[in-house]
Amino acid sequence: MKGIIIFFSGTGNTEYMVKLICGEFQKRNIQCDLFNIENNETLKDEYDFYVFASPIHVEIFPNIFVDWLSKKLPEADNKRCIVLSTQASAVGYGGRQISKLLEKKGYNIVYVRSIPMPNNYYLGKFKATTEDKKIEMKNEAQNEAQAAVESFLRDDVYIEKESLYITELCKLVYKLYKPVLNNFAKKNLTVDYDVCIKCKKCEKGCPVNNIKFDEKIHFDKNCIACQRCVQKCPVNAFKYQGEHFNQLKL
């Protein structure tokens, strides 16, 4: 048996989770590859099972992930799959959001789960996850990974209950809120150039090429507010509305 985990991760929560899932399969001598959609590689239908995972943006999967699935995911012949989301809240609505898309492409969804992870969007009114809570969530993530793999291998079906009404509402809110996301960096982020070491990791790591670096950093209007640039900066040079903040450390 051979599987693959197809994922998008902004600041690292989803990547952390999929590595746990991959490890659980490998403990059982099952090959499981990792496929980051940003690699822009061609994917062939040569796997026995699939796992799809992404963070939640405005309660649903972001366009960067959904568009990739729609345009680049190969069609399959009733391949069993797991759908996972990571988010700061207790539940996300990614599973119902992409279920029809996956089913039309020949995927058989047998496990859908939202996995709470430390909040990476503690800006404005949102609060950072406490250190004690981070430890608790990381331990629970390990338990969730084990439970997902064991359930999947037993051929159990687990579909998290997600309201169709709320899913459709979230899709509408995401569409309406998208211009705010696109301008997030341009309107809210500045750079402390006394701290910046011009490593250009922010430019190279931006999933939507929203950052250009010559002598200074310039933001375009294509941001998805994934927080990768501010969270992954090696010297914490970015400021949100003029203030530094503590970066998320898993």
Score class of each variant (00 low, 15 high):
Ala53Asp: 10
Leu84Thr: 02
Ser85Trp: 07
Glu38His: 01
Ile56Pro: 01
Thr86Trp: 01
His57Ser: 10
Lys44Met: 12
Gln31Val: 06
Phe52Ile: 08
Phe61Pro: 00
Ala90Trp: 02
Ser70Asn: 14
Lys72Val: 00
Asn39Met: 01
Ser70His: 06
Asn39Asp: 06
Asp48Thr: 13
Pro74Phe: 06
Lys104Asp: 15
Leu84Met: 14
Phe49Trp: 15
His57Met: 07
Leu34Met: 12
Gln87Thr: 15
Ala53Glu: 11
Gly95Met: 09
Ile64Pro: 01
Ile60Tyr: 01
Val91Phe: 02
Val83Trp: 11
Arg80Asp: 12
Ile56Leu: 08
Ile37Asp: 00
Gly92His: 14
Pro55Ile: 02
Phe65Asn: 02
Ser54Gly: 08
Val91Trp: 01
Gly92Ile: 11
Ile82Ala: 01
Pro62Asn: 09
Ser99His: 10
His57Ile: 07
Glu75Arg: 04
Leu43Asn: 03
Ala88Asn: 07
Ala88Phe: 12
Leu69Phe: 10
Lys104Gln: 15
Tyr93Arg: 10
Asn78His: 05
Ala76Gly: 02
Gln97Phe: 06
Gly94Lys: 11
Asn78Arg: 02
Pro62Ala: 09
Ser99Val: 07
Arg80His: 06
Ser85Phe: 09
Val58Gln: 08
Tyr93Asp: 09
Gln97Lys: 10
Ser89Tyr: 07
Val58Trp: 04
Asn63Ser: 14
Phe49Cys: 06
Asp45Ser: 14
Leu34Arg: 09
Ser85His: 07
Asn36Trp: 00
Ser54Asn: 11
Glu59Trp: 11
Leu84His: 12
Lys105Ala: 06
Tyr50Ala: 03
Glu75Val: 01
Phe52Ser: 04
Glu59Pro: 00
Phe52Gly: 13
Ser85Glu: 11
Lys44Ser: 11
Cys32Asp: 13
Tyr93Cys: 07
Pro55Cys: 06
Gly95Ile: 08
Cys81Glu: 02
Glu75Asn: 04
Ile37His: 03
Cys81Gln: 06
Tyr107Val: 13
Gly94Thr: 09
Phe65Pro: 03
Ser85Thr: 13
Phe35Cys: 11
Lys44Pro: 00
Gly92Phe: 12
